[in-house]
Each structure stands twice: as C-alpha cells, then as structure tokens.
Design a protein around this nucleic acid. Structure first.
Lengths: 192, 192, 192, 192
DNA sequence: GATTAAGCGAGACGGTACGTCAAGTCTTCTC
DNA sequence: GAGAAGACTTGACGTACCGTCTCGCTTAATC
C-alpha cells in the first residue's frame, strides 16, 4: 500500500553529500560556526534541497549521527576476568579519545546540537552514548556475577555515572582520568 | 601610583542593566536565541556600549554568572549524621531544581555558553558547580570520618560524579533521580 | 551565444521601486540626508538587494538619472527667427525651473552626487546638461547662419557658458535671470 | 558694554588647530569623507570643543575659508593694455590652478559644503569667487573704457560667466581651457 | 589666596546607518 | 517534480560617527 511516488525521486547522492559535508564541518569549525550555507556549498547542493528534507541544522546533525556519518570512536571494554583492571583500561581508552581535540570538539558540538532540539535530544544521546552504556553495563553485570562488584550495586547506574562524569570532564575542559579512576575505586570493593 | 582616570567613567547602571537583561533573556529564550541586539534593547543601552566592554556574547553570560546575576538555586546539604540519608536528600533537592524547566533551560544555556568559549569555560564551571562540589565533598569527608564511607573512597571524585551525572541527565533530558540514588547506594557500603 | 541564465532572475519591480524611491527621497531631503536604509524602506525592498546591484549611493542616483526616473524639466528653445528673443525666452524658462525650490534642490543633489563619484560624473552631467546643450547650440548655429551671431562665435562655447552660469547662479543661490540676459546681450551683436 | 567673561577664555590655539586640521582634511579626503571625529583627532582637540563653537561641519569649513585657512590660489589679472590678451592669460592661469587635482578637490569640497548649508552659502561663495569677480570685472571695465569691449557689454555679467563656466568645467571634470577662450572670443569684438 | 565659572582633552553614553552575512523563501531553468 | 542556481526579504552582526554627557584638569576673573 505504499503511495506511488511521482516525479523525480530524491537524490541519494545529494543526501550523502550533505551528511558528509556536515560531518566535516561540525568536526572543523564546531556546531555554532557551521552554517547551512556552508554545508550546501561544500556538498555542492542547492540550499533548497537541504531545507526540503531537514527542518533545522540540529536535524541534519542528528541525521548524520543516526546514519553513522558522525560517530565517536568505538571504545570496547575488555574482559580479562578482572573488573577493576578492565574498567581502568576502559577509562584510559576513553580518555585517549577525549584527549584528541577533534574528539572533544565533536562531543561539544553534539551537546550543543542536542540542547537546541528537544525532539532529537534523546535519540541523539541514545545513539551516541548508548553503545558505551550497553558495553559498560554488560561488563559490570558480569563482574557482579563474579563477585567483583557488590550485590546491591546497579550496573546501569554505574555505567551512567562513568559516562556522565566523562562528559562533565570534557565539557569543563578538565582532562583528568585519575579522578574517574578514583570513582571506580570508590565503587568497587576495597582490594584486600 | 594609581593611573589617572580620564574621560567619562563607565556607567555602572548600564553595566547592571546589561547583566540583568542577559539574565532575563538567557532564562527566557535560551542562549542561542538571545541576540546582543535584544540585550541592548532590553537594557536600554546602546549596542556599542556592549561591544565596548564585552568581547562576545559568551563573555556577557560569563560576567553575569561571576557577578551573581545568573545563579542556579542553592542546594545545601544537610548533616543529620547519616550520610546515606543526607545524600538522598541532596539528590531530591537537586532533582527539584532540575525539574523546573527554567532551571534546565539555564543549565543548557550555560553549557552552550561555556562550550563556545574556551577561555571562560573553567571559570564558568568553577563558579557554577564549585559551590555544589565544595559542599558535597565536605559532607562526604565528614561521613568518611564517621566511618560511613569506605576509607579508600575519594570525596572529590564522588562529588564530581554526582554533579557530572546530574548534568548528564539534564542534558539528555532524562529526569530520573532514582538512578542517581542507585549510584549512591553503589558507592556507600551496603546497609546491613 | 547568450550565456545561459541560471537561478532566479533579477526582479524588475524591485529595481524600479528602488529608483523611484531614490527619486522621491533625493527631491525631498536632499542627497546627503538620503540614506540607503531609507531607500530600501520606502521601496519595500531588502537592503541587501540594493547592495547587490549598486556599489554606492551615488551609483543609484546615477542609475535613476540614466534610466530617466530623475530628470530636470525639459526646457525647449523656440525658433521665432529672432535669436535674441529666443534666448531671452530660454533664459526665462530656465529661470522658472530653477525658481522652484524642488528644482534647485535636485540640481544641488545631482552636483553633490556627481562630485562624489569620479566615474559616473561625466555620464551624469552628459545626461542632465546634454539635452540643454544640444538644443541651445543648435539654435545658436541657426542664428549664426542667419547672421544674428558673429561669425567667429562658437555656439558650443556659448551654450556651455549659459548652462554653466545658470548652474553657478543656482549653486550660489543667486537667482538673477537679468544677469544671464546681460551676458546674452554682450555676446550678441549690439542691436542697432 | 561688552559683557564680562568669566571662567577660562576660549583657547585660540585650539581654534587654529581645528581650522588647520579642517584645511588639511578637506583637501585630502574631501568634504564628505571628512568626519568631525577626524578633525578633532588631527587637531588634538576634544570633540566637545568643536561642538561648542561650531554648529555643523559646513560651518567649520566656512569659518576656515573666512579666516583664510582655506583659500584657492590667487589668480591676478594683468593689464598689458590688451584686454583680449589679458583675458587669455587669466584663463590660462585659472586653468593651471584647476589642473592641479588638489585644486579641483578643494573646489568640489567647497561646493558640497555650500550646498549643504543655505546660510553660509552666499558668504562662502562671496569669499571664494568674490576676489576673482572683482578683479575680472575691474579689468573688463577698463577694457570697455578703452573701447576693447562693446559699450553695451556688462562687465559683471561677463565676469560671472567666466567664473561660472570655469566652475562648471571643474565640476563636470572637463578640463578644457580652449572652450573658455572661445567664449571670450565670442564676447570681444572680432579682431579686424 | 581661595573660590567660582567656564573651557579644555578624554572618553563613555544612547543612537543611527553602514556594509556584510546568513537565515529561510521564491523563481528560474535543467535533468 | 527534484535539483542547482541564485535573487528575494529579513534581521543580526560588528563598526564608525553622530551629538551629548561627565570626568579631572586648567585658566582666568571675582571675592
């Protein structure tokens, strides 16, 4: 029962060009400094084509994120059997990503984009922080089963805190993985 | 020794009018939608007067924060002798502040302002989150002394995590004090 | 051969509205007091549209003159067969035009516009004083052929002098057609 | 019965500095491009001092002209006994003055200043063109007495025409002394 | 000699217009 | 009918000057 489309179909190449131009510009100048005019110019696309398909600048960014053109580097969490060591590794890996100015720039741009657009906000955060959360929570759950985490500790809450605190440090431009490591120490049972 | 002041002195009333207009507009329309033109108009001030004293929109906001015209409601932490209960109260109080749309709007505006201006960023966060951090860390230290917090737990790291996670929830528009409460449970020793 | 026109074509109505608004304002407040902002407002046109097509205020005035929106009233010179009488009539007619405050205002505005813009200057004067010059010189030539003007007298030089002197009187705000008439008497052979 | 002046008397040096700065700037950038701010800066004078003593930019220029700080080079007319030759010399000398770009610039600036200010206009023209007019008219009168000019010719009208036509040529940026010479030929009796 | 009154340079004030940039819309031709 | 191009109105940008105002500092005449 799909409606019959008449006329020229949407150009996939234009769509891709816009998303890629957005990816490049957002990482370059930042979200605020990026103009729709510049996106159109870099994509070699008419301005109207953008306005036809996206309602706002934040929506283009959101689309680029959902379509996978904008993505933060993956940070996998290892499973050596030792939760404390694995979390320490995760913290270091995350810190490495956020040590890169381009990484921090991207994080800030996404935060600004999301804060501008209530509708896209949850979708955006879900897509960006979701994978980090899933992986962390799963590893914590395993550690809990292995008795390396107190029984009353909530893996979701802890994953949230690790991500939230990382974000907080990025936004405040404090790059201090030690502090995050000390949070983990406070959460894990004291080594005897 | 003091330099001789020449020319008409800066108008304190104009300065105040600008900061108050900024406070009103940032809470109203948000940071991005606020224009310098609108600030000048609402303050009854010439546009040039703003450009003479502040280099950018973010600097006006920063100044308004530092001068105390823009401030988040104070959240004091009680000391009933029971750390767990006091933290629970703090979480609820903080959640109440962030439940108010104006409070969330203000937080997002400040995050955007800070992310636009590397220079002011630390100053800004220090002024806004600093008091929360001090109070929290002090209470945690007391609790630690009272044996209600593990000896190896770092009050600063925990305070950071509570604030960072609150901010994260605000930005992602997840208003869920329960999750924060569960973080506290994970950090505090299990109640017997 | 003609280049392919792409994009939306220039709006003829906007062009006309600008030239007409310029005509009205130049005759009203004068050249200096006329702002581009006011032209745009009166024409109901975006300011950018003016800047897109004209490089300067003087160019708009020049364009309005060349396009015939700004014009001095025509002064035709009669041919009754008597050169002296015809010149006298011309002087009176010209004086009548310059007796009107709007006419003098317009002359001064055009002089200021032309003096601001070396490039347009000749074009402008040619368009404004040209017709006066042609008509006068032609009539003088006829009179010369009829023996009413000395054989060595140069019609072009005399036409120039009549126009130049009229302009001089207008600029100096001396409105004295008699003096111009006496110039003609000095040029024509003494009546016997 | 002059009123007794109290307080600090007007600074003559400031007055002179303003007039000289005006002279320099008017010859440099032209009347329109000259700002009161620039006059004050170049004169090393407070802006208020200018506003205290002169009501408008045109009044400063007028004052500078009247006080002799701005003046066109003098053109004297010789008396060799031959009117035709003397007028030819005058035309050449005048043309030389107007051949200098600075001279033309100054003439245009004064015309614009005068056209802006109805009140000062006559005073200004009187001071600038007056001396030229007096000298020319006197020489023409002598020539007339010597029979080198028709008896019905009006020296004032002719002087006016020579000056007016010179001005006209300057404003239209036609620098053509020949044409002025031909006007003289038309006025003087044909050489036999 | 102290006081008073005005002029002085300096520079901030509320404004207006400048010329530019980008927003989002509209109108043309081309694919 | 989508797309590239580019003109349209709108409105904010940051700057330059406007003419006014307020500082502290002269510089006289008056007390």
């Amino acid at each position: 029962m799909t409606e019959v489309r008449r006329g020229r179909p949407r150009s996939e190449s234009a769509r891709l060009a816009v998303l890629e131009a957005t990816r490049d510009l957002v990482a370059g100048a930042g979200y605020d400094a990026m103009t729709i005019e510049a996106i159109a110019a870099r994509a070699g696309v008419g301005r109207q084509t953008i306005y036809r398909w996206w309602p706002a600048k934040s929506a283009i960014v959101a689309d680029a994120v959902l379509a996978g053109h904008i993505r933060l580097p993956e940070v996998t969490i290892t499973d050596t059997g030792l939760l404390a060591a694995d979390l320490k590794t995760w913290i270091d890996d995350t810190a490495a990503v956020l040590a890169d100015p381009a990484g921090r720039q991207l994080v800030r741009a996404l935060v600004v984009a999301a804060s501008e657009d209530a509708g896209e906000s949850e979708l955006l955060y879900g897509h960006i922080t979701g994978p980090y959360h899933e992986a962390l929570a799963a590893r914590l759950e395993l550690g809990k089963a292995a008795g390396q985490l107190a029984g009353h500790a909530d893996p979701d809450a802890i994953a949230d805190a690790l991500i939230g605190t990382s974000l907080f440090h990025t936004l405040t431009r404090q790059h201090d993985p030690q502090r995050l490591a000390r949070l983990v120490e406070a959460i894990l049972p004291a080594p005897e």
